[in-house]
């Protein structure tokens, strides 16, 4: 749940999603769900010359399982808050986790 909540705080921010086959797509994060499926608006494929296939696609839903990385806007990430949340998440008893 930590990263689901985290991504929700980044809605409206520009991100670059890199898929497991190296295709990278930049766009504004519109929403995310519990599987970390991601919805982007105003998208642009990073290497358009090599990947013109999606030139007419303006928004998209990306399945969480095909994602390798998401590059985030560093100033929008509160790292102290994130670390606290990560520590807290692990301190819950095992039964209450997941």
């Amino acid at each position: 749940m930590l990263f689901y909540s985290f991504f929700k705080t980044l809605v409206g921010q520009p991100v670059t999603v890199e898929l497991k086959n190296d295709l990278a797509i930049t766009g504004v994060l519109v929403s995310v769900d519990q599987f970390l499926n991601i919805k982007l608006d105003n998208i642009k494929v990073v290497d358009e010359e090599r990947y013109p296939h999606m030139l007419a696609v303006k928004n998209c839903f990306i399945r969480g399982s095909v994602v390798r990385y998401v590059q985030l806007p560093a100033p929008s990430v509160d790292t102290a808050l994130l670390q606290d949340a990560a520590r807290r998440e692990r301190q819950q008893p095992a039964a209450a986790r997941r």
Binding site: L36, V77, A86
Partner: peptide, 24 residues
């Protein structure tokens, strides 16, 4: 160390039970 002959070095800011992580 990641699949696909990739390695990362960075500051760990968050992780979860799946080893999802945020690195700086």
């Amino acid at each position: 160390k990641l699949r696909g002959d990739r390695e990362l070095r960075g500051k760990l800011h968050a992780y979860d039970g799946h080893l999802n992580m945020v690195l700086g």
